[in-house]
C-alpha cells in the first residue's frame, strides 16, 4: 500500500446548504435528493421511511441518509445521474431535519435481486454529527421472507439482530410504504457492516 487512506471526519451539523440544499430550501442545486426513482421508472413504486434514534432513544434531527440500490430488474444504474431525470436514478439522499416527525424518506421502486445476492435490498449509509466515520447498513423487505432466508449476507447476521435490517410493508392511502428505523445504540442497535 503506497499511500494511507485519508481519514473520515464527521459531516457535522451544517451540511444542509451544501449536500441537501433543495430539501432544506437553500439556494443551491442538488446532485441527489429523496427521489431515487422518478414517476417513469419501471417497477413497484414504494416509499421507504424511518427515524434515526440515538443512544437515549431520542430522534436525531441532523442525520443524513444515503441509499444506493438496484432497479426493478436487479441492475445498478451505470448511467450518469441527473436529478432532472424522471426515470430511475438509484441514488437517494435525505436529511432528517425537515420532516415534522424527523423522519427520512425515499421515493423509489422496489429493487430486483442483484446477480450476487439472493434477496432484494437497499444499501444505506448513515452520516451525522457525532459520527467520525459513516456507517453502512442495508434495508431488506419483510414480504420477501423466502428470499431473505437464502441471502448469504442477511443469514450471516446473528439471528437475534436480523430484524434490525428488515423494513415492514404498510399499505397507506398514498401508496406502499416500507418502514424501518435506525438505532445507533441500545438493545435494538442496527447492524452495521464493514463493507
Amino acid at each position: 500500500m503506497a499511500y494511507g487512506e485519508t481519514p473520515s471526519q464527521t459531516v457535522g451539523p451544517y451540511f444542509a446548504y451544501g449536500l441537501t440544499a433543495g430539501q432544506y430550501a437553500y439556494d443551491f442545486t442538488d446532485i441527489a435528493d429523496p427521489t431515487v426513482a422518478g414517476p417513469d421508472a419501471k417497477g413497484e413504486h414504494i416509499r421507504i421511511t424511518g427515524t434515526v434514534f440515538d443512544g437515549d432513544g431520542n430522534p436525531v434531527n441532523d442525520a443524513m441518509i444515503e441509499i444506493w440500490q438496484a432497479d426493478a430488474d436487479g441492475n445498478y444504474n451505470e448511467k450518469p445521474i441527473d436529478v432532472s431525470e424522471t426515470g430511475f436514478r438509484g441514488l437517494g439522499r435525505c436529511g432528517t431535519g425537515t420532516d415534522a416527525k424527523l423522519r427520512f424518506w425515499f421515493d423509489t421502486v422496489k429493487p430486483g435481486v442483484v446477480a450476487d445476492a439472493e434477496a432484494p435490498f437497499v444499501n444505506v449509509i448513515v452520516f451525522m454529527r457525532g459520527m467520525l466515520v459513516h456507517a453502512f447498513t442495508r434495508f431488506y423487505f419483510d414480504d420477501e421472507a423466502d428470499l431473505n432466508a437464502k441471502d448469504p449476507v442477511l443469514q450471516s447476521v446473528p439471528a437475534d439482530r436480523r430484524d434490525t435490517l428488515i423494513a415492514k410493508r404498510v399499505e397507506t392511502p398514498t401508496g406502499i410504504e416500507y418502514r424501518i428505523d435506525i438505532h445507533m445504540q441500545g438493545d435494538a442497535e442496527t447492524v452495521f457492516f464493514d463493507v
Partner: peptide
C-alpha cells in the same frame, strides 16, 4: 457517546453492491 455504534461492524464480502456506485452527469 450517544451516536456512535457500540457493536463492531460485521465484515461482509464485497460484491456488486459495494463495487458499483453513482456517477454524475456533467450538468451536476
Amino acid at each position: 457517546l450517544l451516536r456512535g455504534p457500540t457493536k463492531a461492524p460485521l465484515a461482509i464480502k464485497s460484491g456488486l453492491t459495494e463495487g458499483t456506485g453513482p456517477r454524475f452527469a456533467p450538468a451536476s
